[in-house]
Simulated assay, not measured.
Amino acid sequence: MEALAQPVIKVAAICGSLRKGSYNRGLIRSAVQLVKESAVTGIEIEYIDITPLPLLNTDLEVNGTYPPAVEAFRQKIRDADCYLFASPEYNYSVSGPLKNAIDWASRPSNVWADKAAAIVSAGGGFGGGRSQYHLRQIGVFLDLHFINKPEFFLNAFQPPAKFDSEGNLIDLPSKERLIEVLLSLKAFTLRLQGK
C-alpha cells in the first residue's frame, strides 16, 4: 500500500514592522528559506504584506464590504491554516500596523477564529517578549490558539551578530530555534484540524 501524502499546511506570515530591513521581517524571510531548504517539510509559508492596509475606519465598510486591499488581506487570512507573527515591541506592546491588520481581519466575520498561531520576535533587551504577551491577550478575543512552546525571543543586539547588514538572520542557533517553532506550529495545526 502507498503511504498517504501528508497534507501541506498553509502558513500566513505577518510582520508587524513595515521597514524592509527589519529584524522581525528577517525572521520571516529565514522561516521561508528554511522551508525551501526542506529543514521543515509539510508546510508552505506566504508572507502577507500589511503595508497597503488603510487605517481601520468603519466608514470604509460599505454594505458589508471592505476596501479592496482589506478584502484581499482578509481572504489570505481566511485561506491560511495557521499564522506566524513576527512582532516587534513598540512601547511594551504590538506595533500600530500589526494591531491595525489584526483589527481589520477581526471585523465581521472574524477570519482569525479557531486557528493555530506562533509568534517570533527580535529586538533589544527582552527580545520583543512584552509584545508577544500582549499579542497573546489579543488572541484570546480573536479565538486564536497560540503554541505555548517553544517561545522565541531574540536579543538582536547582543554579540555575536544575529543579523547581517540587510536584516537577514545569520545566527545558526537562532535558525535551529526557528525550526522548532515551525515544527510546533505544524503539529498544533494538524492537531486542531483533527489530523
Rank of each mutant, 00 (worst) to 15 (best):
N100A: 02
N63G: 09
K76Q: 15
A13S: 08
H145D: 06
Y47Q: 11
K10G: 00
R74T: 01
A31W: 08
L183T: 05
Y133M: 09
A39R: 15
E46M: 03
G167E: 12
Q132T: 01
P150E: 11
N57R: 04
A72V: 01
A12V: 01
I43A: 10
G42K: 11
N100D: 06
R29H: 11
I45H: 12
V140Q: 15
L84D: 11
F146W: 11
I45V: 02
E44H: 10
K186Y: 02
D79N: 14
G167P: 05
L169M: 10
A69Y: 00
P97N: 10
H134L: 13
N110Y: 08
Y47M: 04
L183N: 15
V94T: 15
G129R: 12
P67E: 07
V181A: 09
V62K: 15
G123F: 07
K195C: 03
N24G: 05
G21P: 00
L56F: 10
P67Y: 01
A101E: 10
Q6V: 04
P52I: 00
G194Q: 13
E44Q: 14
K20I: 05
N24M: 03
L172C: 00
A156G: 14
L53F: 04
S17D: 08
P7E: 14
D79E: 15
A13V: 01
E46Y: 02
Q193K: 15
A187V: 02
F141D: 14
W112D: 06
Q158D: 11
P68D: 09
A69S: 14
A31D: 11
A12L: 02
I45S: 08
V70G: 11
A72C: 02
D171P: 02
D59C: 02
I14E: 13
R136M: 09
K149S: 13
Q193Y: 00
R78Q: 11
K195R: 12
Y66E: 06
V32D: 11
H145Y: 10
N57C: 03
T51G: 00
E44M: 05
R130D: 07
V35Q: 15
A161N: 13
E166C: 00
P7Q: 13
A161S: 12
P67N: 07
V8Q: 14
R177T: 09
R136D: 04
Q158E: 14
I28G: 10
R78C: 01
E151F: 03
G96E: 12
Y83H: 10
L56S: 04
H145S: 07
Y47T: 05
Q33D: 13
G96C: 03
D143Q: 13
A161Y: 05
A80C: 04
E166M: 03
A5V: 04
A69Q: 14
V11P: 06
E2D: 09
Y83T: 00
E89S: 01
S38F: 02
E180H: 07
G21V: 04
I147C: 06
Y90D: 10
Y83F: 15
S38K: 15
K149T: 14
H134Q: 11
K195W: 05
I9S: 11
